[in-house]
């Protein structure tokens, strides 16, 4: 059962750490030093609040010292007339290229683990064997 917190970003942060643990297991138990996150403007997650929650949860945890790199992704739509993908500014959902109102949702609700930086597998154990 994942941890549950009243604060929204705290429960998302707990899910991020679960995802980091799952991915490091898939990569032979290598230690992660940095995690890249992709957070969309429409995801409902505030990046700075998420960073605070991640850092609070990692402090004193076996994942410490894991650093985070949060990339904010813009709210985008795709034009059904000219095909352009454009950023929505000031809630204007009409195509910024041709002005068409026929557009569809494209991006902005990302909430993804985009990369992990892992220590080279086995470094520590090999040096132990030598000594």
């Amino acid at each position: 059962m994942p941890l549950q917190y009243g604060l929204h970003e705290m429960s998302i942060a707990a899910a991020v750490l679960d995802a980091v643990r799952a991915e490091t297991r898939l990569h032979g138990g290598a230690r992660a030093t940095r995690a890249g996150l992709r957070i969309g403007e429409l995801s409902g997650v505030e990046p700075e609040s998420l960073r605070f929650c991640l850092e609070s949860l990692v402090a004193g945890d076996d994942l410490e010292p894991l650093a985070f790199d949060i990339e904010t992704r813009p709210w985008t739509r795709r034009c059904l007339d000219c095909g352009a993908e454009f950023r929505v500014v000031e809630y204007n959902t009409a195509c910024s290229g041709c002005g068409s109102a026929h557009t569809e949702a494209a991006g902005g609700d990302e909430m993804e683990l985009s990369y992990l930086e892992l220590e080279e597998p086995g470094c520590a154990s090999r040096s132990n064997e030598k000594s």
Binding site: P2, I12, A15, V16, D18, A19, A22, E23, H27, A30, L37, M111, E112, L113, S114, Y115, L116, E117, L118, E119, E120
Partner: peptide, 14 residues
């Protein structure tokens, strides 16, 4: 070593 991923944070919920 950087491992690129596209893992949804809430993939267990999803």
């Amino acid at each position: 070593m950087r491992v690129p991923l596209e893992r949804k944070v809430l993939n267990e919920n999803d």
